[in-house]
């Protein structure tokens, strides 16, 4: 239950970049991890990830449960505030091997109870350019001691992340906008196509009447004076 809550809280918002790679291909990733820590890590097998179609971005994850020794090693790494490193060997369709390393804080891995995410970035041609291990977390480490029972199995989510197609200047919408403006102006002009008198006669007529009346009264007064 708690795990589910955490999962809900930390929504991993990988934006789906859309299927824009040129050639679809499959990829096999051999994952190795270093549980020994220290400056010279010794990588041991962790599992295999098969991505049958990069375009569909779905992955088949094959990882063994950890042995007790391995659990203790991870716990020790976490307690020592050491680094947890993986080495991912990517074998693409064309049999070209590329090797990537990625590092996270071991304590974060332990606190997340081995719930990690693997980001596989591909370029526009579908070549893998980077493999990174990420823990979804709001803060680095809280320093809590995670019991060994919770460090049973990696629940890895794999995200294939495509390169977005480059944006181009949006001239069509702008021209459209200008066109609409022009039309609106024309329509306005059309509506108000009446003459000045026709438009404002309601204001002009009272003024004229007042003037006529006043000029009609004035000559009389003048005349009376004479």
């Amino acid at each position: 239950m708690k795990q589910l809550l955490i999962f809900c809280l930390l929504v991993w918002l990988f934006i789906n970049y859309g299927n824009c790679i040129e050639h679809d291909s499959s990829v096999v990733i051999n994952l190795k991890h270093a549980l020994s820590g220290g400056p010279n890590p010794v990588f041991k097998d962790r599992g295999t990830i098969t991505i049958p179609s990069l375009r569909l971005s779905q992955a088949v994850v094959h990882q063994k449960r950890l042995t007790d020794v391995e659990r203790i090693q991870i716990q020790k790494l976490a307690n020592d505030n050491d680094l947890y490193r993986i080495n991912a060997t990517v074998i693409a369709n064309d049999e070209i091997e590329r090797s990537f390393i990625s590092t996270i804080k071991a304590c974060m891995l332990a606190e997340a109870e081995l719930d990690d995410r693997l980001s596989v970035s591909v370029d526009y041609m579908g070549r893998v350019i980077g493999v990174s291990l990420v823990i979804a977390s709001k803060a680095t480490c809280e320093g809590s001691n995670v019991s060994i029972d919770k460090l049973g199995e990696f629940t890895t989510n794999v995200y294939v992340r495509h390169t977005e197609t480059g944006i181009i200047p949006d001239t069509a919408t702008y021209i459209d906008k200008l066109q609409k403006e022009k039309e609106a102006k024309e329509r306005d002009d059309h509506k108000d196509n009446r003459s000045f008198l026709a438009k404002y006669w309601i204001y002009i007529v009272p003024v004229v009447i007042v003037m006529v009346i006043s000029s009609a009264t004035n000559p009389e007064a003048q005349g009376g004076g004479q």
């Binding site: 990625s102 590092t103 996270i104 980001s119 970035s121 370029d123 526009y124 350019i129 980077g130 990174s132 990420v134 992340r161 495509h162 390169t163 977005e164 197609t165 480059g166 944006i167």
Partner: peptide, 12 residues
């Protein structure tokens, strides 16, 4: 620091 590719875009 982590080497994570946060965003990628390509112009042909």
């Amino acid at each position: 620091v982590t080497g994570l590719i946060i965003y990628g875009t390509s112009h042909k």
